[in-house]
């Protein structure tokens, strides 16, 4: 950005500067290497299971009973996918409306208050959401349609959890729409909704997609909330009232006592989860980089 210190200007041959550069370089290397280490260790730990069991058994074994040497991850993968899709299907539109409210419809004072409220919500621990779901939501669902701990509970709590993030991200992408566009629309005599639909939303589209993708990534990786409300029965659900277990819940429940191939199989599920999240994050970065066509 600034050429002040670039190599084209002879820098001052101070020993301190060398030291400083070396120190900064090592800090940054550590920060950069964390990701490498995470991937490395996850793969290292999952190699034994992959070697002893092979990839197929994680998909085609009769069930997930590590004690009896069966390791089918599919019910958990499906559980994760179902809850995530359900949560984003709920939180996406609601978060978008909430962003529109805050950015376009609320009176300025209310908008700033509302914005702060949403920011506050984004920081609430997942374990608190899970706890509330467990003591309030699950009994309510139980009254409606037993047993209570279910995929539905998981979807609702996950949707609540990712809503604030979705709303904040959508808000910031709406805020990036240049004001000239709004003035132009006003000059053309467009109403508020027409301006939003024809000008603002198309202009903010890539940002809105990024918001949705990042929120999906958050939902995929969420552990505590789903662990506490989903019932954690390993099965492919036949209705939304059936209890299910997600990949993340499985890791959290079984890591404490897992040994040998079982432990390694949990790391395999960690790698699967990491891959799903990496694909989403990459897609989010990519969609954010696509130039905006208006």
């Amino acid at each position: 950005m600034f050429k002040t210190w670039s190599s084209s200007i002879p820098s001052f041959p101070y020993h301190r500067d060398q030291l400083l550069r070396w120190a900064l370089w090592s800090c940054a290397s550590i920060a950069g290497l964390i990701l490498v280490f995470i991937i490395l260790f996850l793969i290292l730990e999952s190699v034994p299971a992959l070697r002893h069991l092979g990839v197929n058994r994680f998909m085609f074994d009769p069930s997930w009973h590590p004690g009896e040497n069966t390791f089918n991850l599919m019910p958990m993968i499906l559980g994760t996918l179902f809850t995530t899709i359900g949560a984003i299907a709920l939180a996406g539109p609601i978060g978008f409306c909430s962003a529109l409210f805050c950015h376009c419809y609320a009176p300025p004072r209310l908008a700033s208050l509302y914005g702060r409220f949403i920011e506050l919500l984004a920081g609430i621990p997942s374990v608190v959401f899970g706890f509330w779901g467990l003591v309030v939501l699950v009994p309510l669902i139980n009254q409606w349609h037993p047993p209570g701990p279910s995929m539905l509970a998981g979807i609702l709590i996950l949707a609540m959890m990712i809503l604030p993030t979705t709303s904040l991200l959508a808000q910031s992408s709406l805020a990036q729409v240049p004001t000239e566009y709004l003035r132009g629309a006003a000059a053309l005599g467009l109403g508020r909704w027409a301006t939003l639909r024809r000008v603002v939303i198309p202009a903010a589209k890539s940002g809105l997609w990024t918001a949705a993708l990042l929120a999906t990534g958050r939902a995929l990786g969420e552990t505590m909330a789903v662990l506490m409300v989903c019932g954690n029965v390993v099965q492919i659900p036949s209705s939304i009232f059936d209890p299910i277990r997600t990949l993340t819940a499985n890791m959290a429940l079984e890591m404490a006592y897992a040994v040998d191939d079982h432990r390694s199989a949990l790391f395999v599920s960690g790698v699967v989860l990491l891959l799903m999240v990496l694909i989403l994050v990459t897609a989010a970065n990519w969609s954010n980089r696509v130039p905006r066509h208006v």
Partner: peptide, 28 residues
């Protein structure tokens, strides 16, 4: 500008790191 390629790489890796689920951090 003194660590061009390296800072790019680090920035990318931090972006990814920010998206990694907490349970994966737990496993690691």
């Amino acid at each position: 500008h003194q660590f061009g390629w390296m800072s790019n790489l680090i920035r990318r890796s931090l972006d990814v790191l920010a998206g990694i689920p907490s349970i994966v951090f737990g496993l690691f």
